[in-house]
Amino acid sequence: MKNKALTLTFIFKASSLNYGEGTANISELKKFHRGDGEVYSFASRQSIRYDMVRLGNEFFNWNLNVVDKSKGVVQFKEDCTIEDSVEMDLFGYMKTKAKAGADKRSAVARLSHAVSLEPYRSDLEFLNNMGLATRINENSNLATLEQHESLYTYTLTIDLSHVGVDGAIELSELEKANRVKQLVEITKYLNREIRGRQENLAPLFVIGGLYPIANPFFLGRVALQDFNARLLNVKQIESVLKQTALGHDVRVCTKIGLVDGTFANENEITELADTVSIEEFYQYILQEIDAYYKVLV
């Protein structure tokens, strides 16, 4: 079986996805500054992974009973393997051993941060608990949250040739295919529960496919050309599509899924590569995964 990898870059719309430590009664978003002076919020890859595993348990009954506290460290159980845990298989693990190093498995599914495509403009939300305080004639407690609604982008890359393989353990091709398809299905309905809200992280735009190398081709290449007009920067994507990977044409390997009406320059986007609905995109990717693992459907 030839080595192949699946890489998908998504755009979704959401609000205030990840908070840091904060100061006093101010909850601060995780964010960073760029050289142009703009500030962008982000949801860490760890937070995205957390919700993927949570939904894996809810949708597909992924086994989460694989963790304990061993030698003072919270980690995966020593006797658990990738046979017991889809999470350990896809996202890797490290089990420390006193004076003996550690057992490690690199992640075969790699995530990037989900970074906002629109700059943060210091919007704040003022909160209090007056509803509770007035019941007992007390003064309410005050809090301030940073708020940012934006389009966000993140990338998922899965090395298909290493799924279900760990030392002497190798799972069946059917099980490998099922695990990858489950993770892909999770991205279709991804959501995040945060501060009493449930944010929808389902894609409005997705680009990717199966490639001969595990490379996140479109990571850092998806951006807005104009914040106000909601124009996607097609030139950056076009430059990637002109590349080759081990003799394979990147454009030929690539498909785009798009929700109608998301971007003003939709006609330009559809000219980049074969463009279909989000549902059709996912059906195509699931079929490609089955074909790679030679699973009969």
Rank of each mutant, 00 (worst) to 15 (best):
K4Q: 14
T7A: 01
I11G: 00
A14Q: 07
L17S: 02
N18Q: 09
T23M: 11
N25D: 14
H33A: 15
R34M: 12
R34D: 11
R34V: 15
G35M: 13
D36H: 01
E38M: 14
S41A: 15
S44G: 12
R45W: 10
R45M: 08
Q46L: 06
I48W: 01
M52Y: 04
M52C: 09
V53W: 08
G56Y: 13
F60L: 03
F60P: 00
N61E: 15
N61F: 14
W62R: 01
N65I: 03
K71F: 13
F76Q: 07
K77C: 04
E78V: 01
S85A: 06
V86M: 07
D89W: 04
F91T: 01
M94A: 15
A100Q: 14
G101D: 02
A102K: 06
A102H: 05
K104A: 09
R105Q: 06
R105P: 02
V108R: 02
A109P: 05
L111Q: 08
S112T: 05
H113D: 05
V115G: 07
L117P: 07
L117G: 06
E118Y: 07
P119F: 07
P119E: 10
D123T: 11
F126N: 12
L127D: 12
G131R: 05
A133W: 05
A133M: 03
T134W: 14
R135A: 14
N137A: 15
N141W: 04
T144S: 02
T144A: 03
H148N: 09
H148M: 08
H148W: 05
H148Q: 02
E149I: 01
E149G: 11
S150Y: 12
L151N: 11
L151G: 08
Y152V: 00
Y152H: 02
T153C: 04
Y154M: 07
Y154P: 07
Y154I: 02
L156K: 00
S161W: 08
S161R: 03
D166N: 06
D166Q: 10
D166M: 10
A168H: 12
A168W: 14
I169V: 11
L171K: 02
S172V: 11
S172F: 10
E175T: 01
E175M: 09
K176N: 01
L183F: 00
V184F: 10
I186Q: 09
I186S: 10
T187S: 08
T187L: 07
L190A: 03
N191K: 13
N191R: 13
E193I: 14
I194A: 09
E199T: 11
A202Q: 05
P203S: 13
L204H: 08
F205M: 00
F205A: 00
G208S: 09
G209M: 07
Y211V: 03
P216E: 01
F217A: 06
F218I: 06
G220P: 01
V222P: 10
F227N: 14
A229V: 13
L232Q: 08
L232G: 10
N233G: 12
N233Y: 14
Q236E: 15
V240K: 01
L241M: 04
V250A: 05
V252Y: 15
C253I: 09
T254F: 06
L258F: 02
V259S: 13
V259Q: 09
G261E: 02
T262Y: 03
A264V: 06
A264P: 04
A264F: 11
N265T: 11
N267F: 12
T270W: 10
E271C: 04
L272F: 00
T275F: 08
S277E: 03
Y284D: 13
I285M: 09
E288A: 06
D290N: 15
D290S: 12
A291S: 14
L296K: 15
